[in-house]
């Protein structure tokens, strides 16, 4: 929550609750309490995590499987489904 203090105050944002930035700039990943961390040495690149991620936050960078932390909400489904236990959930600082 501490990063909220850096956001603009009530005198700076438009009234009426209308959005003042694009949805693509609103990174809902900051709702997360636990973050999935992939151990690349165990990962077999089977992409089971990509199939099950409910928030489209598993990305294939052409070489390895990565997590898009801008949108990952830390639900832990990827870690649960990973057949080789390559993903661990780590508490956010």
């Amino acid at each position: 929550m501490s990063e909220d203090l850096a956001k603009p105050g009530w005198k700076q944002i438009p009234i009426a609750g209308v959005p003042f930035k694009k949805a693509t700039e609103y990174h809902t990943g900051d709702w997360r309490t636990f973050k999935p961390v992939i151990d690349q040495s165990k990962c077999t690149k089977c992409l089971t995590c990509w199939i099950f991620c409910p928030d489209d936050s598993i990305v294939w960078d052409g070489n390895t499987v990565q997590v898009d932390y801008r949108y990952c909400k830390g639900c832990g489904i990827c870690a649960e489904m990973c057949p080789v236990k390559a993903i661990t959930m780590v508490k956010e600082e």
């Binding site: 909220d4 105050g9 009530w10 944002i13 438009p14 959005p19």
Partner: peptide
């Protein structure tokens, strides 16, 4: 400040507003 798709910047009225901005809008 109108709901008009022909606005130069069309506005959304009534989107989700969570803990990080709701309070500021109430203060306004």
């Amino acid at each position: 400040l109108t709901l008009n798709p022909e606005n130069e910047v069309p506005l959304t009225f009534g989107p989700l507003d969570l803990w990080d901005y709701y309070f500021e809008h109430k203060r306004q």
